[in-house]
């Protein structure tokens, strides 16, 4: 589904990713862990196409297409979803407007029929219920005045509605209490645990991985994947710390 080969990038002329390779197949859940400042968010943003995140070497293919040849909105229409570590607030634009325009933009790009108001509301209600988010929240402006946990739930509602092929979730577990973590974990499983989909979880902690069980765990440090393993690697990291495991 996603193949990243020897990827390097720069932000403001500063090299962050330094030859990162990673391959994700349909049906798999991968977790990337790593110390603060390792480049985890940079990887997510670079794959999403955030302006200012210049690719300086290597490449990535997503579902057979050159990822970096596509504009950010085209990547989304092709099935990529980016869960933000810090979801953006958009005053004056309601979640429902935001999501309906997003979904219909994607559908237009794929040559599918747009959803009308009724069809869209039905879908939004279903996904909000799945994530335990009050429909009233979706009438409010995007992320404005939402608590940290509400923002993360709202992002998962977005994911449910947009129904991507690959979700890259950057610290979706931060800001969640234990109950919310359970709900969000179950939501991710319900939406993404399918043979034709894949997930890349970026996290600091083992705790999300108790709910969304990874098939592979990678350690990102200094802009590269320095170690890969199975789910036991996450437990080892939790127990012994990055320094010990990477030594």
């Amino acid at each position: 589904m996603l193949t990243i080969e020897n990827l390097s990038n720069e932000i403001d002329g500063k090299a962050i990713l330094k030859g990162l390779s990673l391959s994700i197949n349909a049906g798999e859940v991968h977790a990337i862990m790593g110390p603060n400042g390792a480049g985890k968010s940079t990887l997510a943003y670079t794959l999403g196409g955030r302006p200012g995140y210049a690719v300086t070497g290597g490449g990535a293919t997503f579902l057979g297409k050159d990822l970096f040849e596509m504009e950010p909105h085209e990547r989304a229409a092709a099935g990529l979803f980016l869960g933000f570590q810090y979801p953006v607030e958009i005053p004056g634009v309601s979640n429902l407007q935001f999501l309906r325009e997003s979904l219909n933009s994607q559908r237009r790009a794929r040559g599918e029929k747009e959803l009308n108001g009724g069809e869209f509301i039905k879908l939004a209600k279903e996904k909000a219920a799945l994530l335990g988010l009050d429909m009233e929240m979706l009438k409010r402006p995007v992320n404005v005045g939402f608590s940290g946990g509400e923002k993360k739930r709202a992002e998962m509602v977005q994911m449910g509605i947009l129904d991507p092929k690959l979700a890259i979730l950057d610290e979706t577990d931060s800001g969640l209490d234990i109950d919310a973590l359970k709900t969000v974990g179950a939501g991710i499983n319900a939406i993404m645990r399918r043979p034709d989909k894949a997930v890349l979880l970026i996290t600091h902690y083992q705790r999300l991985l108790d709910y969304v069980k990874p098939d592979f765990v990678h350690v990102l440090a200094g802009g590269r994947i320095v170690k890969s393993g199975g789910p036991e690697l996450a437990l080892e990291l939790e127990r012994e710390g990055y320094a010990e495991v990477m030594a």
């Binding site: 302006p51 958009i90 935001f98």
Partner: peptide, 29 residues
């Protein structure tokens, strides 16, 4: 807001739709 434009793009919104939506919000009041 460039951050908002990227957030919208990351959800699949084409640039013209995203800009129009932000501008509508700006003048709506």
């Amino acid at each position: 807001d460039k951050q908002a434009l990227f957030y919208m793009a990351s959800r699949g919104m084409d640039p013209a739709t995203a800009k129009t939506l932000l501008l509508k919000a700006f003048v709506a009041g």
